[in-house]
């Protein structure tokens, strides 16, 4: 499981690095998505268990010694994925609009608001 945590934080840092260093708007949006994926992996990893099975039990079936994964992080991940998809869609639609208005995708030229 520790490996998962490393990978997820690696993804988060990678995504942030992408947003900071890439000047193309699309790459910035990709960076945002990568940060999201890293967070989602982190959430799933926290609920996961190597020995566990799917958390589908009827009342009374659970006896001491039963191993199942925590269902709450999975529900959280689903929500988080949906939100991430919405953010990406929104960002991409803004990118399209910006391109048609500014005629460029370079962040260094899209700075009419500054100072």
């Amino acid at each position: 499981m520790t490996f998962n945590y490393f990978v997820s934080f690696f993804f988060i840092v990678l995504g942030l690095f992408c947003i900071i260093t890439r000047h193309n708007l699309f790459k910035v949006v990709i960076g945002m998505s990568v940060v999201d994926y890293g967070t989602n992996l982190l959430i799933v990893s926290i609920g996961a268990s190597n020995k566990g099975t799917a958390p589908i039990y009827a009342a009374g079936e659970i006896v001491p010694g039963t191993w199942f994964v925590d269902p709450i992080p999975q529900a959280l991940t689903l929500t988080s994925i949906v939100i991430g998809a919405c953010i990406t869609a929104m960002a991409l639609s803004l990118v399209i609009k910006i391109y048609s208005k500014y005629g460029t995708l370079d962040t260094r030229e899209i700075r009419r608001l500054h100072g």
């Binding site: 947003i19 708007l25 910035v28 945002m32 953010i87 929104m90 960002a91 803004l94 990118v95 609009k97 910006i98 208005k101 500014y102 899209i110 700075r111 009419r112 608001l113």
Partner: peptide, 12 residues
């Protein structure tokens, strides 16, 4: 002027 740009920065 700059509305889309401001929104994009806010989002990111």
């Amino acid at each position: 002027e700059g509305a889309l740009e401001g929104a994009f920065k806010y989002l990111v």
